[in-house]
């Protein structure tokens, strides 16, 4: 697992992919910071963190589109799957590599808290709650992206399909508003990624929602492991 994590993490920075991701991430997030906090002179950072959650729709596929697809294409999956390593080790190593790159990007945004602190008083506990929620929520997105990548050997298909799924998740919230069926409404309310983030936006730290995010990530990691194991039987 550590070997795969190290290789994948390095691969993000020996190819343009890691830099493209970080550049896109920081441009969007700092642009949003300028438009919300600076032009409006507010110490409220929660809005940016909410925007960040939406940008994951396009940012995460950059990270995960080639995680498994590239291995299928280069046939290096043969190396990984015939080495004395469990499928779970491969998947978790790859997940952690993508996740770490994301965490680097997220860590840089902490500067925003410092900037606000230099001219006013930021809501530090609120910001920390947001960050924890973002760390948990992004794990779900990255796990989904990795899962999609394990289904195809085309990076392009992986990227487009991931974006599609993320947009669908976003649309669930709109369905929630419009549906009249109580039963459906209850389900949509329960699965909504964004509604759960709202709790943090309101300044409440909700352990239940963190647990939901982490379990969601776990489910998709498990499915990815199953995809790799099933490859043997196809």
């Amino acid at each position: 697992m550590t070997a795969i994590f190290k290789r994948d993490f390095r691969a993000y920075f020996t190819s343009p992919l890691g830099y493209v991701f970080l550049a896109a991430f920081l441009i969007i997030i700092n642009g949003a910071f300028y438009l919300t906090s600076i032009t409006r002179s507010t110490n409220n950072l929660s809005l940016i963190h909410r925007i960040l959650l939406y940008t994951l729709i396009v940012l995460v596929p950059i990270l995960t589109m080639r995680s498994m697809s590239e291995d299928y294409k280069q046939k290096t999956d043969q190396l990984l799957l015939t080495a004395p390593v469990k499928a779970s080790g491969i998947v978790i190593g790859k997940f952690l590599a993508a996740y770490s790159v994301f965490v680097i990007g997220l860590a840089v945004t902490f500067i925003q808290v410092l900037i606000v602190a230099s001219v006013g008083t930021p809501n530090i506990p609120g910001a920390i709650g947001d960050y924890i929620a973002l760390l948990a929520a992004s794990a779900v997105y990255i796990a989904i992206g990795l899962f999609v990548s394990s289904l195809t050997e085309s990076q392009l298909v992986a990227a487009v399909a991931s974006i599609g799924i993320f947009v669908f998740i976003l649309l669930l919230d709109i369905f929630y508003v419009f549906t009249k069926v109580e039963f459906l409404k209850a389900i949509l309310y329960w699965v909504s990624m964004y509604r759960r983030f709202n709790t943090f936006y309101m300044g409440v730290f909700s352990l239940a929602d963190i647990v939901f995010y982490i379990s969601g990530a776990g489910v998709f990691l498990f499915l990815t492991i199953r995809v790799l194991e099933k490859k043997r039987w196809s």
Partner: peptide, 23 residues
């Protein structure tokens, strides 16, 4: 395997080091 399972962006030493860590 029929097609050697190589990571094209790595150097030979890095690659063999990775395989060593893997095995």
């Amino acid at each position: 395997p029929e097609q050697p399972p190589l990571y094209p962006d790595m150097t030979v030493l890095e690659y063999l080091g990775f395989v060593f860590d893997l095995k």
